[in-house]
Amino acid sequence: MRAFDYVRPDTEDEALALLAEPGTSALAGGTNLVDLMRLGVARPERVVDVDRLGSTEVVERDGSLWIGAGVRNSDLAAHPVVRERLPALSRALLAAASGQLRNRASTGGNLLQRTRCVYFMDPTKPCNKREPGTGCPAVDGLSRDLAVLGHSEHCIATHPGDMSVALVALEAVVHVRTAEGDLSIPAVDFHRLPGDEPHRDTNLPAGALVTAVEVPLTPLAGRSTYRKARDRRSFAFGLVTVAAALTVEDGVVADVRLVLGSVAHKPWRATVAEDAIRGRAASGSVFDDAVRAELAAARPTDQNAFKVELARRLSVATLHELAGGRA
């Protein structure tokens, strides 16, 4: 691991001033960054420890749940309001990592975790995300776990998170502090597609701090869930994950949210499918046709075509479950 200076600022203002310097990384729970530093993927000259700056409060206010950036994944998953009124969020957090890691991982840090693409994680390999302009060996290489939607010739990495997928389905807003002032970024716009700048995972301005996540407590959010398909039953990254919410009135879908995880550089909000489901009968054939229409945009490699079919089946099963069927 490269040697680094360690600073633990007492205030957000101090932290923002420190983070403005090049070669600086913000450290929260450390479950991803410390590993990347040990691998030589992240090589900060200075680490600014913001782990104790982030609020650890979870507060209900104005019809939303406000989650401090320092709230641990384990505490958030177990929070009574999250369990009762935002089940997709609780389920997503509980499907992620291990009990030990959830105890350390923070809300803000989780949003900023990096891809687990094996080329990104190996500093001896080219990678446009790690070193812009060096190329992407994954496109024609080991791509089994990688993106099938929204990727570019420069990068087919996926965002590996679970929590963020649920946050997009729940229409959360990420609150951010920068040296110039406060910003609110809808969760759906927080992560980005790679395009020709795959080194940028998110639309978070450089040197900014995530301060809180706001999740509206709507009736739709209360009818949400999260499912995850992976290579082993626990403690593994998703191959495909689904966060969904559905309300049905008199057999007709009143409203729906469908978001796919582990299939793109960002949580993939399936708006084509949502539009084809909303106002229609809550039936398996409607769900299936809608999801097929969404996945028509998929461009899998020869190694990850199975993810498209897996996404279809998992999406339809999850919607069916929310509609009251068994799946």
């Binding site: 633990r8 479950t31 410390v34 040990r38 420890d49 782990d51 030990q100 890691l101």
Partner: peptide, 28 residues
């Protein structure tokens, strides 16, 4: 040494944690 096996699990302020992914200087 990557948080994947759990052999290094200890309790920090009573909560189970991977000691390998925890920088000691953060534990003041």
């Amino acid at each position: 040494d990557h948080g994947q096996c759990g052999a290094c699990t200890v309790l920090v302020d009573g909560r189970r944690t991977n000691a390998c992914l925890t920088l000691a200087v953060t534990l003041d």
